[in-house]
Write a protein that binds this DNA or RNA. Structure first.
Lengths: 351, 351
DNA sequence: CCTTCTTTCTGTAACGATACAGAGCTTGTC
DNA sequence: GACAAGCTCTGTATCGTTACAGAAAGAAGG
């Protein structure tokens, strides 16, 4: 039955007009008479013409109408992270306004092989610009993205030359929590982060720099290193966060830290789950604070004290920067505000 | 400085080889000697060649390596819906394995104008196949998608001729909740759904068919229509769900329904928020059940009784069906399992 | 030494559209 | 009636690749 797909020429021949007229019928209705246009569209309908081929049109137009995004973790993992989802939401908001689409490039495979696969996918991605989201500077995807020679924007990390970056200073932001908890009277602390080099999941820079920023600040306040316990989750998830503080909660009350700083809200919520399970009162016996202010943070009970880093706005800003580069306008990276939101999960230590 | 972008020809000339050899250097390393390949790549590096243009390559190859997704709601809204996110997660899982990318087509603009805009974007989307997610049959995006003449898959709705559909039977699924609650002893019910024709947000078919499936089943069990109160949220969000049951909770205890069925977990959680705020004990004074089994459902307190409809698997299945069509293999829509998960938010009515 | 493979590389012919510049033909104006 | 100004419509020249078929040259085999 159906032989080859009809093209503009096929339609043009049937409608008895030139190929350009058919093209105009789709793209510039004002360039031809209504009568001709209808005749062309009728011919197209008869032939089952699907409309101008988007790929061919993009090639000719030299633009794709798409912005690509590379996320830290493998794509399916990214969707389990409310913080990432919030960034994506911000990006799509801005893209909606611009009438552009979003291309999510997955990380296929795992282990070391992923380097080649990702680079390969990136090479074939039809995009006008790329946004790199919290990638490790050494990630092969970063190099592959740079080779593409399209406008680039990074979120969180890494800072590349000539590439605008959106995000917060992880060390400084984490450091904000220290004086607050110290001021409440806490002297024994725990830090919950994701362990380095976890199989199958790449580490976000924040998993290293946030703990150190927090601890450095504590040190400055006079807290001794031995009074800071570090808990490492096996991955960035609520359940892993819960599991990671199990041992901590099992230590005798006298010795146990009275405040826990989790480097993300996900982990903080996991810690709250663990506390609830172990019968440890939050904030009565243990204060918990996080970073991100994901939607679940405020809805938790007690509501989680955290630092809002405007993830939604970061997503918007990233796309805006990409669009500005495409338009040839000058770009300068915006400052992202961070604000400590004191809620119910933190209080003075017991006694 | 930088004049025109170098192309394959430019590189070929500099490396002293034919254009095809340069192409092969990138795509088929086994088709040329290692020495030549290095020479070519060196020339490319010198020229600042970004690699073969993905759009041109796609045109020639007649495939994009991308599957497009159209979601019910405007894209930014979709990311606030954990159910949608779960479906997306499933889709990306399957796409990762296939080494393909995901294109999210936004709904730009709002109001009626959106019809044209969406169709327009769909027309330019460079994809090998499209997945339509819970769209209303009358949505202009549905027609636009069909005109594209690429393999199609729908999730949830609508059922289109020759298009495989993934999803559950909304009426039957909702009907499963009725005998369970009735069996617990409940006789006065409330249904929480999203009101029809809300501005700026299109309605998913489930918002209509689920309430009717539930109510029909109740009727069959002998419950009178006057003993079923319908609450309509202004949009599909937790807070709107909370607001929508405010009046309900304010009614005198004697008259108040003892069981509430929310057509989605989001709404159910909103109802739980409202109950908590109004001091109504769940499940002591009010049983609440939802549909979806989103991650937050199990984590809620009390954990939410709901129906698992395997959203993650639905996402995977949709992509699998699309890929199978692309491969020219026969497709048949899979059955999605639904299972009532009885948790802590439902119990026998008071007294 | 001739034949038959391999290996390595090259030309030609699409892939399916759009930008741009202009060609006819009306219409309007004085 | 001549000339400018619109409106429609048409050719030509790319956009930057890859598929395919084969050519040239050296290796292997008898």
């Amino acid at each position: 039955m159906a032989s080859d797909r009809p093209t503009l020429d096929t339609v043009a021949a049937v409608a008895g007009v030139s190929r350009m007229t058919v093209s105009n019928a789709y793209n510039r209705p004002d360039q031809l008479s209504a009568a001709t246009r209808e005749r062309v569209l009728a011919a197209a309908a008869t032939l089952g013409y699907a409309g101008p081929d988007p790929t061919a049109a993009s090639l000719r137009r030299q633009r794709t109408g798409t912005i690509g995004v590379i996320l830290t973790e493998r794509l399916p993992y990214a969707f389990t992270d409310p913080g990432m989802v919030e960034i994506l939401r911000g990006m799509t908001t801005e893209l909606s306004d611009a009438g552009m689409s979003l291309l999510l490039v997955p990380e296929s495979g795992g282990e070391d092989d992923s380097s080649n696969r990702t680079a390969e996918l990136l090479r074939h991605a039809m995009v006008d610009a790329l946004v790199l989201c919290s990638l490790d500077p050494g990630d092969p995807a970063v190099a592959a993205a740079q080779e593409r020679k399209v406008p680039l924007v990074t979120i969180g990390h890494p800072k590349l030359p000539h590439v605008p970056m959106v995000g917060i200073d992880n060390e400084k932001t984490a450091a904000m929590v220290a004086p607050y908890l110290y001021g409440l009277g806490h002297r024994r602390f725990a830090v919950l982060t994701v362990g380095a080099g976890i199989y199958g999941i790449r580490n976000r820079p924040g998993f290293i720099s946030r703990p150190s920023g927090f601890i450095d600040e504590l040190t400055r306040l006079g807290v001794k290193a031995e009074d800071v316990v570090i808990c490492e989750a096996s991955e960035h998830s609520r359940s892993a966060g819960k599991a990671a503080v199990g041992a901590l909660l099992a230590t005798p009350t006298k010795k146990r830290p009275t405040a826990l700083f989790a480097v993300t809200d996900i982990l903080a919520l996991g810690a709250m789950d663990a506390a609830a399970g172990a019968g440890v009162d939050v904030p009565g016996e243990l204060s918990i604070a996080g970073i991100d202010d994901i939607p679940d943070a405020a809805a938790a009970s007690p509501p989680l004290t955290t630092i809002d880093q405007e993830l939604f706005e970061q997503g918007r800003a990233a796309i805006r920067l990409a669009l500005r580069q495409l338009a040839g306008e000058p770009v300068r990276a915006p400052r992202t505000k961070t604000e400590l939101l004191v809620r119910g999960s933190t209080a003075a230590p017991p006694r």
